[in-house]
Design a binder for these strands. Structure first.
Lengths: 238, 238
DNA sequence: GCGGCTCACATTGTCAACAATCGACTGTCT
DNA sequence: AGACAGTCGATTGTTGACAATGTGAGCCGC
């Protein structure tokens, strides 16, 4: 009974279009709405209303919400309500400190295997980000920056690391979106990313480590100034 | 609308016994059954059967399973079935490499704040683990070892780090349980943990880093020997 | 004998109705 | 006036039935 999957490797790789279950679509839609800022942090998500909005029943919707709860984007209180998580100063500080560690670990994993494809991919994503920044398109630059860093994680092939990055990325994106809504353009960051990529392609690992630490410290400082201003009444998550 | 929670800090802290929703109970029970090894890796979990077994409907059960899927313990294929995840050699290698990074990060966070309570707590948990090993109680030693390392993560107060450790711990426990079932006692590990705790309480951070790296490398090697033996036909997760 | 097809079964996905719980409001009693 | 109990509305938790899909067995033609 435990060996259902046998030699179906080919069949399961090709033509894997499983008719799209609703739950996945809802989870994606909701996540996008939250990360885009269409739903503000702290706002309550009412199941019946959302179900209507998505044109589905509450069952699939609840499962999608459960998924987002596990991703750390929502927080639920039984019989009371589910809210979009609000990030406190400490939360964002944790995110940045974690990123330093994970990103250095990622480069450790890939350092000896930085082939031409990796170098080209990294440069291409930096250029894309630079273009967004020059165009002052903040929403696009958020996506571009996430893709730049995500490319590094992906390149490691370390599934557990990628999974962890995914869980952090959501919260980071949530914070960036809030920051963007409140402040508009986040300021010039061209030089920072140029240095970052330069170091990533160099042969001096320690220099890269310093650069990553500084890179994140800069982002973290920007953060605290922003969050300390408002009350940061966080609907605490996890 | 977004300010439902106001000055209810006290009321929400005290007397928070929300009548125990089923889903939480089911998730805990299922998780325990899987990590205990009562359900073997690769086995299929049929919703109707499990729902009967737990005496609930399929709704709450599905939500509990969704949660375990997000924890990386189950893997689901739409319209086909949900299986307990099987760990491959690479998966376990990833877990151990990740642990090295995370645990060193944890000690970085707490290094300057290692007060008396921390030292006592660490020693107490090492003694508990030693007792389990001397008694050759393998099941208990697994729990004790997880609590020893978990104590370090908890001590950091870094919620995101703790959350990440939780997600890894499940898979680690899953592997240890399988290892235990196949091999029985995993061999003497007294010395290793004694050294680990000794370094953790010393003032030589670099020595601790080396010790952690070696500690994990030993566990990792033990792993590969074990897993390489069998086919490791992994019901791939994530 | 073998490849493709059909069909029935097992399992998961979805839905709409019902029950339990929480928070606020109100009216009363002291 | 202030505190307290009861009640009401809103929201989530749970259930059983129905629909959609994937899988494998059996059949047929070659």
């Amino acid at each position: 009974m435990a060996d259902g999957a046998k030699g179906k490797a080919l069949g399961s790789v090709l033509a894997r279009v499983p008719k799209a279950t609703f739950r996945a679509h809802i989870a994606d839609g909701l996540r996008a709405a939250i990360l885009n800022g269409d739903i503000e942090p702290g706002a309550q998500l009412v199941e019946t209303a959302l179900a209507d909005q998505f044109g589905v029943s509450r069952g699939p919707l609840r499962e999608a919400m459960r998924q987002l709860i596990d991703e750390g984007l929502l927080v639920a209180v039984p019989y009371t309500g589910t809210h979009v998580v609000g990030l406190s100063v400490d939360d964002v500080r944790e995110i940045y400190s974690m990123r330093v560690t994970l990103e250095i670990f990622a480069f450790e994993q890939i350092w000896a295997r930085r082939d031409q494809a990796f170098r080209q991919g990294l440069v291409a994503r930096r250029d894309a980000l630079t273009a967004c920044i020059d165009a002052e398109d903040d929403a696009a630059s958020i996506v571009a920056e996430l893709q730049l860093h995500g490319f590094v994680y992906e390149a490691t092939g370390h599934k557990l690391l990628i999974r962890t990055w995914d869980s952090i990325r959501g919260r980071l994106q949530l914070y960036w979106a809030a920051h963007h809504r409140a402040h508009g353009i986040r300021g010039p960051r061209r030089d920072g990313h140029d240095r970052y990529v330069e170091m990533a392609l160099s042969d001096d690992f320690d220099a890269l480590k310093s650069e990553i630490t500084d890179h994140m410290a800069r982002g973290g400082r920007q953060t605290e100034d922003f969050l300390r201003g408002r009350e940061a009444r966080a609907v605490q998550g996890s």
